[in-house]
Structure formats: structure tokens, C-alpha cells
Amino acid sequence: MGAFDELPGESSHDYIEMEFGGRSGIWELYGYVDFFNVLNNDSSDKAGSDRIFAKFAPRMSLDGLTGKDLSFGPVKELYIANQTVINGGAEYSFETTTIDPDTGENVVASNEPLYQTFIGLGSDVEVPWLGKVGLNLYGMYDLNAKDWNGYQISANWFKPFYFFENGSFVSYQGYIDYQFGVNDDFAALNSSHGGQMYNGLYWHSDRFALGYGLKAYNDVYGLKDGGLAGKTSGFAHYVAATYKF
């Protein structure tokens, strides 16, 4: 994959992504692992930064667990949902000292690797044209701070909409992760909300896919745009060439 102007940091870089998922009984799993700066290029925007970003999102079907059909209206199935996000390790964490613009005092901002887990209620919802959309509402537990900190609503979709005679097709696929109720006491760094939306157009065959994605950011990860984290709102572009196992 290639990322261009990815936020925060307006980073442009190449990377390898392993994406996986499936269903087994009452369990459903989706996840991916990203490996940055594959050739260890000193001129890469990711040089000297964490190499790994991972997301694991298992869900356990409440319908399957209880043996009852819990569907209603457009909601087709309910789940206990989890999502864990890990960004690299402690090797590249650092601290910076700056001035809080609200108080004029010197403050220390720690840039710890992201390590958060979310747990809540999940569902599959039938949406006009898009079809089945995964929709989850979580509470977020920050494993660095050892504290609950806000909520997140997430949605994901995969909609084939144009088919070719050879069986390949074009899809609109993507996701939304939006956090709210985040602690923003440190106003120079944090916002009370923030999120991202990925909009992808991909061509798929049985074994290959080629795609372009436009990602929109708004105070992503609850980091204030223009604050200590820099630019955290805007747009980034992605290209992908995929082989399917």
C-alpha cells in the first residue's frame, strides 16, 4: 500500500498490510497488521518511527450464545464487540516540553504508542443500497493510562456495485471510527471527540484487487487539530495492490 498525507503528521510512505477475517460458530473476527518502511529507507517519513500498527476486532454473537433470534427491524444480529488498537512499541516513544497556550505554563506532552481496547454492543444492520453494515458502540479503555476514556461508534461496509462479464467487480468499501466523550482537560493536545472515515473504490477478482481510498479526518484519535499533535483534520489518499490467499 501507499499512503499520501496521512494524519497526524502528513506522512507519505509505503507499507505492507496483512488483512484477515472470518466466521466460526458464534465468533467473528476482523483485523489487520501494517508494517511500515519495509526497505528501511532513511529518507522515508516513517524512518525512526514505530514500524507496526495493528487492529484486532473480534465479536461474539449474542444470537448464537443464547440460541435465540434477537433480530428486529433492520438489525439482523447482535454481538458483544471488542476492538484493540496497537501502535508500535515503547522504543520510539518520547516526551516534549512546550507552553500551554491557555495557561502560559510549561507542560510535558508524552507521545506514547497507542494502546487502546474498546468493548461494547455490536450489530449487523441492513442499510438501503449498502446492504449489511457492521455497527458497533464501544466504551474505550486506554491501556497506557489504565483508565476509561470516552466512547467510539464504528461502522464498516463492503458493497459490490458494478460487475464485469469475467466475474470481477468494483466495490465501495470502507469504515468509520468516531470517538466522543474523550477527556480534553489537556486542551493543548486533546479534543473531546475525533474520528476518521475511509472511502475506498476497489476492483476485485478472485485472487487480486486494486484500489484507491480517500480518508477524511477530524481531530483523529481525539487529538486537537493545530495543537501539540499538529494537523489532525483533513484528507489523505491511499493506493493498494492486493493478493488474496
Rank of each mutant, 00 (worst) to 15 (best):
L130T: 00
V170F: 15
A155N: 02
S110I: 11
Q83Y: 02
A187I: 09
Y79D: 02
S71V: 04
S123C: 03
D147C: 00
F163V: 11
D124Y: 07
E105M: 10
D142L: 06
N149V: 01
G174Y: 06
Y151L: 03
L143I: 09
N156R: 14
Q173N: 15
G122P: 01
E77Y: 04
I153W: 14
G88S: 04
P113E: 11
S154W: 07
S110R: 11
Y162G: 06
Q83P: 00
Y175V: 10
V133S: 04
W129C: 08
F169H: 08
G139W: 12
A90S: 15
A155P: 00
Y172T: 03
Y178L: 03
Y92D: 13
N156T: 12
E77S: 06
F180V: 00
K76S: 15
I99P: 03
P101L: 10
W157E: 02
E165N: 15
T103Y: 10
N82Q: 13
G167K: 00
D177R: 01
Y151D: 01
E165P: 09
E126F: 04
N82T: 14
Q116E: 13
Y178A: 08
S71Q: 08
N106E: 15
G73S: 03
T84R: 09
D184F: 00
N183D: 15
L143D: 04
F163C: 09
Y138E: 08
A155C: 05
W148D: 05
N136R: 06
P74C: 08
G174H: 04
G139M: 11
T96H: 03
Q173C: 11
T98C: 04
L137K: 00
Q179W: 12
T98W: 01
V125H: 03
V108F: 10
N144Y: 01
P101S: 07
E112Q: 13
K159W: 09
Y115F: 14
S93T: 12
N144W: 03
V170S: 10
L78H: 11
T96C: 04
L137G: 07
T117G: 05
W157A: 02
K132A: 12
M140F: 01
G88H: 06
G120W: 01
I153Q: 10
G73I: 02
F163A: 15
N136P: 01
K146N: 12
S93W: 04
I176G: 00
W148H: 03
A81C: 03
V75T: 10
Y138Q: 06
E91N: 14
Y79F: 05
